[in-house]
Write a protein that binds this DNA or RNA. Structure first.
Length: 1018
RNA sequence: GGGCCAUUAGCUCAGUUGGUUAGAGCGCAGUCCUGAUAAGACUGAGGUCUGUGGUUCGAGCCCACAAUGGCCCA
């Protein structure tokens, strides 16, 4: 006996019970261990940070991470899955800073790095319990008891090892480079972080500045000489007109750039001359002034001008951009010159570009190329240094003061504002400053070819990411700025000699401890700041003290090193690269990880081994709200996963994730869709299951593993054929990392099973004799349900388990006690009959048309008709229908099936035709008295069935039926007595008043009055 | 400014290598069926397949350009 199954079901409750079963019986662990020794299938879990509640998008990625390993396990692979937690980085620090109401690094230092990092350490697991609960509840099977954690000493040590490998290959360098810098967080941002924070429509100054040109002796060409004559005119000074949107960089100006091959005009404006590109005269509004001279850009080269702010006058250092940036002596009458560069735009501005090497990437490059001066007058907090009138101000606040100063000196030609796109810090929304400073880099550009070649071997789903978003990113690779001037992170493992400046990279704790003069160690060892900062040793060159560089490393490096660091490679598990644990077969994250984790994994793996570390990747689209807008706390449109799970269950949410839309697309999430999934799919499946169990128990059906289904009807053969085809389809789709297609195929099968197989087989299940046909029906439906439970196990592990345990567990004690320990079904291709499948589709079509004809004629299906007339495209189809004739007769409640050659023959009085394409079906509209009586008998049966249910009788319970009515009705009751008795499980039909305790009702059927009563037997 | 993705019924989505009259589910209106009943069937309304060109005997599908939305980059 199966345990009884109500058609009413509370999925979340069923799921909770199954969770308990899995927990109490270590089913996950056993599902892994039972396949030990088989080939491995490796999933890398991209570590989330548990310092906030998991969102619906985390559910999406976690169920996609789950389904493939579950499938592979059932296919026999050994597939341990290790959880991981990302614990370092700016997001964590910012969360802690927020909690402490800090506004910058100074407060952290004051508070103490020790205490601050302790807070970070606590914060990263603030929501661990909730993450673990959610992970378990949605049945993401992963080993939560032994996770890798990026802040563990062992994890850090592997990261150190990895950096040391790169160091030894000469791939780590310290560059004086302009990087996007967040003045609030006090650190550089990597290019992928910058990408997160662009804002449109930012209002900034748009100003035109005049740079006073000085006469020169060095000018030689005729044009230059003419120019010089103008410059010698003491009454009319000459200015180069330049344009900028960042006035605060003007004190750092050390050159002006022109385009050598562009034409420039000298315009006489009132009592001064202005120089700018001819092409931009109109745009700047100078087209109506007199052009006194036209020259080429290269004539302007080497022209000297007065700096707007002589750095020496304002107490700011001036360095020279030759090797080592040597400090320059004060010069009273400092001049700068015009240079030619390739990047001067003639689309906007003036065609003369202000160059401040400290504050722009191209400016810096130009500075290196032309050996310009380097003037840096802003500190790391974005505050102007020196003794300018605007010193001490934040750069953006200094902008208007700088402009006032220039205006007072007559050097501001025009001041406006523009709206453009500007990058902001993705965490704290402070405008980023492009800022020259020393940063540690990994020379990823050295392995660019390897990155691209490695990508060729990776399967991306969807495919377009491969050579689209990811491929483009690799093609445009720049070196990885991987150091951060922060506190909570893997400390950079580079030590520097205080005296001679020698650097050394340390690759392990052992190596560090073995250094001559090593000191500062406190037990227990904690590799984090500030303790690691205390670890010093002697410089092997000069004997002075070696101190650690103050930076920590980008947390993306942490997570990207997980293939090795989760195993503490190479300090432990040194066979990792050969024993199948590397590379991963599968990873899965959302599309924002293209430049995040996907990249850091790929880069580190390529740098170390010149080999990709993942073979297949599903790249998920983002989840939007029901209106297609991004979910955000501010908008209040964030969907809380627990609410959905508690109401509809995890399986419903999982099935939604897999089948609702292609995984790579953006998806609009609504709870309504999950509710629809439940109705459309889960309840349909449940109803079939409940139907089966109800009747199987009545008939004491016991499946026999050895039995051959030799008595199968055409209907049975058909659904078994569809089932075996389904196994192939699902297997193929999952093997190709396409759960969506696989799930949709299952949906379609369940629909056929419910709405054709079960509907057409119902009478076979409730007829009284236990004959071969009935057994065949049970065995067939049983096989479908058991196979479905296995096919569905990776998708909806709870419901699959419920089906399996009841259908298999209660009958076959020797079978695995969980569907997740079972093997994936194998298709028996000999049972696939394509002809029968096509023929059955045709029958369905004819039945559908027949019902349509009945509907149009207004004749109930309950009313039997003499025949149905069908016209089909070919004699083949006619033969097919002949073969499956019983299905049509029963479905349409007709006595006979007739064929005609052409639709035209049907178009006559007395018939109602319905057609589609080459197929037409007609029913007679005349009903003989005999058929009318039979129809009435069926009507009586129908009413009695409803009464049985209303009276609360059991499905299999026998009753006595009473009736009283007009003569015609009495005759119907007598003529069809056997039929009525059989259908309604009535032992007797008694004419007369219903007995004591009977449930009675009276009806008017076909115009005749009748009183009916039903009563339990004794 | 550049790149990628999407755009098919009110909503969510299918739509094979280009080939009859573009489909499903939900929702809506109506009818039916029902011992799976918190299901099911049928009918109806609802589509210029985002637009404009092009290739072709034939385009929802291929090409070009554009629009809208989303994402990424500068």
């Amino acid at each position: 006996m199966f345990h009884s199954v109500s058609s009413k079901v509370n999925f979340p409750q069923v799921e909770e019970n199954i969770l308990n079963f899995w927990r109490n019986n270590s089913v996950f662990e056993r599902s892994v261990e039972s396949r030990r020794g088989s080939p491995r299938f490796v999933l890398y879990e991209g570590p989330p940070t548990a310092n906030g509640s998991p969102g619906i998008h985390h559910v999406l990625s976690r169920v996609f991470k789950d389904i493939i390993p579950r499938y592979k396990a059932m296919k026999g692979y050994y597939t341990p899955r290790i959880a991981g937690w990302d614990t370092h980085g700016l997001p964590v620090e910012l969360e802690v800073e927020r909690g402490l109401s800090f506004s910058g690094k100074a407060q952290i230092e004051e508070y103490g790095v020790d205490r601050f990092n302790t807070r970070c350490r606590e914060s990263v697991f603030g929501y661990l319990k909730e993450w673990e609960a959610m992970t378990e509840r949605i049945a993401f099977w992963v080993d939560l008891k032994h996770p890798y954690i990026t802040m563990d000493n062992k994890y850090i040590e592997t990261v150190w090892w990895a950096i040391k490998q790169m160091w030894d290959k000469g791939l780590v360098y310290q560059g004086y480079k302009v990087t996007p810098h967040c003045p609030r967080c006090g650190t550089s941002l990597s290019s992928h972080e910058v990408a997160l924070g662009y804002q449109d429509d930012v209002e900034d100054p748009s100003v035109y500045i005049k740079f006073k040109v000085l006469p020169s002796l060095a000018l030689e060409s005729p044009e230059q000489k003419k120019l010089n004559e103008l410059l010698l005119d003491k009454n009319k000074p000459t200015y180069l007109l330049a344009w900028t949107t960042t006035p605060w960089t003007l004190p750092g100006n050390t050159a002006l750039a022109v385009a050598a091959d562009a034409e420039y005009a000298v315009v006489e404006v009132d009592d001064e001359y202005l120089i700018l590109a001819s092409a931009l005269l109109e745009q700047v509004g100078l087209e109506n002034y007199k052009v006194v001279e036209r020259v080429w850009g290269d004539d302007l080269e080497y022209l000297e001008y007065e700096p707007l702010f002589n750095p020496h006058r304002y107490g700011v250092e001036r360095r020279h951009m030759s090797s080592g940036l040597p400090l320059q002596e004060p010069v009273r009458d400092l001049t700068y010159s015009v240079i030619d560069t390739g990047f001067v735009s003639l689309e906007e501005g003036t065609g003369i570009v202000h160059i401040a090497p400290a504050y722009g990437e191209v400016d810096f490059e130009a500075g290196l190329g032309k050996e310009l001066d380097f003037v840096h007058m802003v500190d790391l907090q974005g505050i102007i240094t020196g003794n300018y009138p605007f010193s001490g101000k934040f750069v953006k606040d200094a902008d208007p003061l700088i402009l006032d100063d220039l205006k007072a000196r007559g050097l501001l030609y025009r001041s406006e504002t523009i709206r453009h796109t500007y990058p902001f810090c993705w965490r704290c929304e402070t405008p980023l400053l492009y800022y020259a400073k020393q940063t540690w880099y990994i020379k990823t550009t050295a392995v660019k070819e390897g990155l691209i070649a490695g990508n060729d071997e990776i399967n991306w789903y969807p495919e377009h990411i491969k050579y689209g978003r990811f491929g483009d990113w690799l093609e445009n690779n720049v070196d990885w700025a991987f150091s951060r001037e922060r506190y909570w992170g893997t400390p950079l493992n580079i030590w520097r000699c205080e005296s001679c400046g020698r650097y050394e990279c340390i690759g392990s704790v052992e190596e560090l401890k073995g250094k001559t003069g090593f000191t500062g160690l406190k037990e227990p060892l904690d590799l984090h700041r500030p303790f690691v900062d205390e670890l010093t040793f002697d410089c092997p060159e000069c004997g002075a003290k070696m101190r650690r560089a103050p930076e920590v490393i980008d947390c993306w490096f942490d997570s990207g090193a997980m293939p090795l660091a989760q195993w503490h490679y190479p300090f432990e598990n040194d066979t990792l690269l050969e024993d199948g644990r590397f590379p991963a077969d599968y990873i899965c994250e959302a599309v924002d990880q293209t430049r995040g984790w996907f990249y850091s994994l790929h880069a580190i793996s390529t740098l170390l081994f010149n080999h990709p570390c993942f073979k297949n990747v599903i790249c998920l689209g983002h989840i939007l709200d029901v209106k297609g807008e991004k979910m955000s706390k501010a908008k209040g449109n964030v969907v809380e996963p627990w609410a959905v799970i508690n109401k509809h269950g995890a399986d419903a949410l999982r099935w939604y994730c897999f089948t609702a839309s292609p995984p790579g697309n953006v998806r609009r999430f609504s709870e309504k869709s999950v509710a629809e999934i439940t109705r459309r799919f889960l309840l349909t499946l449940w109803n079939v299951y409940s139907f089966f169990v109800t009747y199987a128990n009545i008939d004491r059906f016991t499946p026999d593993a050895e039995a051959t289904l030799s008595f199968q009807s055409e209907l049975d053969k058909w659904i078994i054929s569809e089932l075996n085809q389904l196994i192939i389809d699902v297997d193929t789709a999952l093997d190709g990392y396409n759960p969506t297609e696989a799930g949709r195929k299952i949906e379609s099968f369940v629909n056929d099973l419910s709405n054709w197989y079960v509907r057409r087989s119902r009478r076979r299940f409730w007829k009284s004799e236990n004959d071969a046909d009935k057994l065949s029906a049970y065995a067939t439906l049983y096989e479908c349900l058991v196979t479905l439970s296995k096919l569905l196990a990776p998708f909806i592990p709870f419901l699959a388990e419920e089906l399996y345990q009841n259908l298999v567990g209660s009958v076959f004690p020797e079978a695995p006690d969980s569907v997740h320990l079972a093997d994936f079904p194998v298709s028996d291709v000999t049972k696939i009959d394509k002809k029968l499948e096509a023929d059955t589709r045709l029958v369905m079509r004819v039945a559908s048309l027949g019902r349509a004809a009945r509907s149009q004629a207004g004749i109930k299906v309950r009313q039997p008709l003499a025949h149905v007339v069908v016209s089909v495209a070919s004699s083949n189809e006619r033969r097919s229908l002949e073969r499956l004739k019983p299905q049509i007769l029963e479905e349409l409640n007709v006595k006979n099936l007739e064929f005609i050659d052409s639709v035209a023959e049907l178009d006559k009085p007395g018939y109602m035709v319905s057609s589609e394409g080459n197929c037409a079906v007609a029913i007679p509209t005349e009903i003989s008295p005999e058929l009318a009586s039979e129809g009435l008998a069926r009507e009586v049966v129908h009413r009695l069935q409803i009464m049985r249910r209303l009276a609360g009788f059991d499905i299999a319970e026998y009753i006595v039926t009473y009736y009283q009515g007009e003569a015609y009705m009495r005759k119907v009751m007598e003529d069809f007595a056997d039929y009525i008795k059989q259908e309604t499980l009535s032992r007797q039909l008694i004419e007369g008043l219903p007995g004591e305790g009977a449930f009675t009702e009276s009806f008017k059927l076909g115009g005749y009055d009748i009183l009916l009563g039903v009563k339990r037997l004794g």
